[in-house]
Design a protein around this nucleic acid. Structure first.
Lengths: 204, 204
DNA sequence: TGTACTATACCGACTAGGCGGTATGGTGCA
DNA sequence: TGCACCATACCGCCTAGTCGGTATAGTACA
């Protein structure tokens, strides 16, 4: 994709919003700072977004669409076996833990923590996009379940949400300890759980 | 304990801070609102806390100590078998998902998300207290591992952090979907994982 | 016992600055 | 000429934090 040819002011604001909000949260992210980081005037900002809350909702969608495009284009998608696809998805999530926290942590999880009670529209947007991604994961899980664990006592949807919970929680612990390695360990446990729930006949 | 006889202004502020920060996050929680909820003047607030950041750090400790006392007094602590103790801890975490989100979600996870980059002292306090609790869990896990899974490829410490990650992530998903049941499902998966990692000879 | 002094707990009006948001006007392109 | 886009100056409110002060209780000493 990389539509870096002519980044419009709107796109620059959205990119800046991702960076700033992921670093300091929604409430502490000021419109002025987002404009400064975007290299855009306040007039431009309010030309595209009626208020700060609207930016947050747009940023949630922007983040979600970007992530979806990225996962959709990832090589693991071509893996024919559903079980392997699930595990490779988890491996990809672990491999993404590089660079600053603002580069790999989840905007949705960060925002919803502090807005769920005060900004219902933001909460709703975060929920929607988290579930959009979880549904993608659930499709692979469903396929893998049919083949490898047809009688498992959980649904693919529930397992998909669990994967997202582990990832979100891993981000929190990593931020707290200031070390992405903590998140990697958590994802390793998630992988082990999935392996046990989808017993591989080849390794039996 | 229940020293509810004469709640000092300081204690009232700390209780109010827990409620307000868990509802709207650190940045959006204003000193004025915390004072209002506490029924205390602003003068009292700054008599006990040099600034808002100091309150956050004190609140982290207050929350942590309260939680530690609660878990320490919980009946599952008397369970002689370490494996059962671990599982009953998880069951307790699930049982606690009652009432408003501000009643059962974690202050530390909420605060660290939005302060890790901007308030190092708060980040440090959250990390310290998360790990304090994780260390308690790790002790039971270590004992269970010795008996039920001596050759498992993970450490008790790593597994303890994983349990906390699942719980933190479960809170995020529950807030996003506005339904604590989501968190309960996640914790059920965590329980299943622990069961597989500590194979029970009785059920074999 | 009474009195002077000190320390601690607490109060609420106030300030200075930062905040989200607005008003107005300029610029480039159809 | 009109419109989309962008810039700057500005506004009013809200914020964390300050400051001068009061109430209460304990202590020292005659």
């Amino acid at each position: 994709m990389t539509t870096t040819a002519k980044p419009s002011a709107k796109t620059k604001v959205l990119d800046a919003a991702l960076a700033v909000i992921r670093t300091k949260g929604y409430a502490a992210a000021t419109v002025d700072e987002i404009c400064r980081v975007a290299g855009v005037s306040k007039g431009s900002f309010f030309h595209y977004f009626v208020d700060k809350e609207a930016l947050a909702i747009a940023a949630a969608e922007y983040f979600s669409m970007g992530a979806a495009a990225m996962f959709d284009a990832a090589p693991y998608r071509k893996e024919p076996d559903a079980r392997a696809r699930v595990l490779r998805y988890v491996d990809l999530r672990a491999a993404l833990l590089r660079g600053d926290f603002a580069d790999f942590t989840c905007l949705l999880g960060t925002m919803v923590q502090e807005t769920y009670a005060t900004h219902p529209a933001i909460r709703e947007a975060c929920d929607q996009h988290i579930r959009l991604h979880a549904d993608d994961v659930a499709q692979d899980l469903e396929a893998a379940k049919r083949t490898y664990a047809p009688d498992a006592p959980w649904t693919a949807g529930s397992m998909a949400l669990f994967t997202q919970a582990v990832i979100q929680g891993a981000f929190i612990l990593a931020k707290a300890h200031d070390d992405p390695a903590v998140a990697a360990e958590c994802i390793a446990h998630l992988r082990r759980y999935l392996e046990t729930q989808f017993p591989d006949p080849a390794h039996h």
